[in-house]
Each structure stands twice: as C-alpha cells, then as structure tokens.
Design a protein around this nucleic acid. Structure first.
Lengths: 133, 133
DNA sequence: CTAATTTGGACTAATATAGTCCTATTTGAA
DNA sequence: TTCAAATAGGACTATATTAGTCCAAATTAG
C-alpha cells in the first residue's frame, strides 16, 4: 500500500501548528485538542521529533515545544524515516534488511524495483514542511 | 509505509515470465515453481488479472495463461489498483471513502496531501510492465 | 474416466499500525 | 514545600492489513 502513516500525518499537522505559533511554546495538549489528535500518540511523536532535533522542548509548567529547524530544512523523507522506519517499495530494498528476500535469485524485477525505489525517495526528498505550511 | 505489496510484486514477476514465453500458455504451477511464489496466492493473482482482462486463460489439461495486452499497455498504477485497491497517500484521499476522515475540518494539510497524491499517482501511471521486462 | 488445470470462496496466520495506560521526571508558581 | 502542568518513555492492547492456506468445484485434452 502507498500511504502516509498517521504518525507522519500527525507530525505534519503538529509541525505546521507549531510553525504558525510565533515562537511561543506549544504544548502537546494544545495541538491534540485543536487538531483532534490522540494525546498519547501525539506525545510520542513530538518526543521522537525532539530526539531527532527537529523540535526543542521545555519540561514542566509552562513547558512545550518549539521548532529547532526552519520549515524548509525539514524533509518529508526524513520525517517518514524517523517515524516509520525505512522506506522501501519492496522488501529487498530495505537498507537494514537482516532477512534476505525469499525470492533472491528467482526475483526478476529487482533492478527496475530499485529504480522505482529511487524515484519514490526523490519525490519525498523534494518535499519539506514549508510545502505544507 | 511506502511499499509495493507482495501481490503486485508477484504479478510483475508473473507477467514478465509470461511475456517471455513466446506466446505458449504458461501454467500457474510453472511460474510458482520457477519463481518460488506460493502457488495458491499466485493462482488468485492470475485469476484476478484474467478477470481484469490483462490475461487470457484456458482451463483444463494443457491449459494456462497468456497475455491479453501488450506489456506497454499494462500500467503499474492499474495493477496496484486491481490487486490492492485504491491508492491513497492518506485516508482522506481514498476515492471510495465511505467513512469520513476523523480529522476533516481540523486537518490542515489536506491540499498539500492532495498534491502529493497526484505526484505519487503519476509516478505509477508512467510505469508499464514493459519497464520490467 | 482421469489427470491437469483454472476458478473461487472461506479461513487462518503473520505483520504493521494505531492507540492506550501507567508512572517517572522536571519545573514554575502559589 | 507542595502542587499542578508539562515532557519523557516503557509496556501493553486493539485494530487493520497483508500474506498465505485449505478445500471443493468446474473445465477440458487425451
């Protein structure tokens, strides 16, 4: 299936929201409430983005999140990678594949799949958060 | 996740195999054996392709499948659609969506997602089986 | 008649995604 | 110095999707 996961969808919405909040800290609760995103799930996503240096966070009362990068420096490709792991159009294209594709030698479409893989990657590498704002 | 399903992968391999078999009928068993594809699953896929007029079939002894279209007339996009259903980068992009996206109004990225949707579609619409042969 | 084959429904298993629950830690302010 | 508002993060459950299996019927050449 070709789909953007909910995690990435929520991340895009959250980043857009934060980017439009004039540098004041934004809480997970605030985003969750206004955008109707499950709070716990959103928290996990924001934590992840913080650990990946996309966001800055302040704990405690009056805490919240702010952007740590310009929106045009945050690539959709990277977001997808952070939140969902490797992007691969087919099993054999996983960068970190531990298990070999069961087909291997009998697979007759490998090289064209690799080409497709690159095209899909490029598409997502050419999109940044600024496109969504 | 951005992935080509096994069904589509197997379909590509099968179509390639059939296209290289000089117009003689090819059985599901033959493809399954040489390409190491689970027989029952492959059968389903070939039946589907037959019902979608991509393949012709002969039942009974000496039966099998043959192509009903030129390889450059079979689009990856259509294959994906036939075998996996609607392609949608996000829930709200399903053509046949009965359930509304829970976010709806609160969704702030809809228009850009629609653009992305089109780009992904175009990518797959521009690939035919002949690219894989 | 029989064996090889497609046809197709129903089911199960495996995997991935989405969402929940709980507790700890940090911090500003009453 | 306690309390409430936040982030941090592990463990778990539920749901959905994908992959694969099983079984029985229909077709057809020899």
């Amino acid at each position: 299936m070709i789909r953007i996961s909910k995690k990435v969808e929520y991340a895009l919405m959250a980043l857009k929201f934060i980017s439009q909040s004039d540098n004041k800290l934004v809480t997970a609760r605030e985003i969750s409430d206004t955008k109707k995103i499950p709070y716990d799930l959103l928290s996990k996503i924001l934590q992840k983005l913080k650990n990946e240096n996309i966001l800055l966070s302040n704990q405690g009362t009056n805490g919240g999140y702010s952007l740590n990068k310009r929106t045009d420096e945050i690539y959709l490709y990277n977001l997808m990678n952070m939140l969902d792991g490797d992007i691969a159009v087919a099993e054999c294209m996983y960068e970190t594949k531990e298990k070999d594709c069961s087909l291997e030698d009998s697979c007759s479409i490998k090289s064209e799949v690799a080409k497709l893989q690159k095209e899909v990657e490029d598409l997502f590498k050419n999109k940044t958060i600024s496109d969504f704002v």
